[in-house]
Design a protein around this nucleic acid. Structure first.
Lengths: 157, 157
DNA sequence: GAAGAATGCATAGCCCAACTATATAGCTAG
DNA sequence: CTAGCTATATAGTTGGGCTATGCATTCTTC
């Protein structure tokens, strides 16, 4: 399992990564009674991290289609969690911006989620914590690289 | 960032973990044109890893409701990817077992997925690979512990 | 500066995974 | 043998995801 440099082990590694990723998703979903969906939180988090942007760009960064993002933004707007700012330079477009109440709701959800999941992780050793933190960082760089590609309107690799 | 034993850093770590997890899920979803859904593959993988089991148990381990699993099993059965074996001891129940063709399909899907995602990960250093491999192992132990609890019919902690 | 192409978002209509609530069938105790 | 529990199935809803398409606006080009 640790003979790490050949291609086949990269295959196994990515396969395992995706597999454990799906299982963690189910665990997280089952761990919170929150009525709101992950997609909603993902969207607010993107706006928080990258700042206001147009709907279409938000869709590409979130890796969903533009109509899907239109629906999500509508949901978010209904809850008052984002604001739509008319783009002065282009009457077709809006800038979507996270509303403070949205950031607050995001934090509350995160706290609830973490509260529910912490029992599974609170016996991590310091080493294990650092391993997880580094893994998160590694994956994040790869995803962000892919996001940049997507952001410039490229197709799916 | 490394004053690692306090609660707040665990909160941040879990939050980051779940966040990057969702983004990886979107990347994976967008990376394959496969018509089949992740839930299908997750189910076969569970059967492969844990062996034949009853539908209800499969639902608990997969952390979905029993009706959801009934539907998934139906889908899998239509494709011939699982077998339903009558439980000799209980006429209400079946043992669900992965069919070889299902395992084959799972492998094919994994290969396709990995092929699509490898470009994002093929420049990993050996260190980074080992970090990811260890992180996968750590998360897996936590999920399996949670699974065992679920398997015995417990609620969501 | 108007016609046609390209762009940005919305709408329509679909599929599927997830849920709750409930029905049906079979097992098990008394 | 009946009461209740257990295992799966069905019904019906919600919501994220998609493609296809419509409509308004901007850009381009002559």
């Amino acid at each position: 399992m640790h003979s790490s440099t050949d291609t086949s082990s990269l295959t196994a590694l990515i396969g395992d990564l995706v597999s454990v990723n799906h299982r963690l998703t189910r665990l997280a979903a089952a761990s919170t009674a929150s009525a709101e969906s992950p997609a909603v939180w993902r969207t607010i988090a993107v706006l928080r991290d990258l700042g206001p942007m147009r709907l279409g760009e938000l869709a590409r960064v979130s890796r969903v289609s533009q109509p899907t993002m239109t629906k999500l933004v509508h949901t978010l707007d209904d809850r008052g969690w984002i604001r739509r700012i008319a783009d002065a330079n282009d009457a077709r477009a809006w800038l979507i911006s996270a509303d403070p109440s949205g950031l607050e709701a995001l934090d509350a959800w995160r706290d609830e989620l973490v509260g529910a999941m912490a029992p599974y992780f609170d016996d991590l050793s310091i080493d294990e914590r650092e391993t997880l933190a580094r893994a998160v960082a590694v994956i994040r760089t790869r995803i962000e690289r892919a996001d940049d590609t997507a952001r410039n309107g490229a197709a799916t690799a």
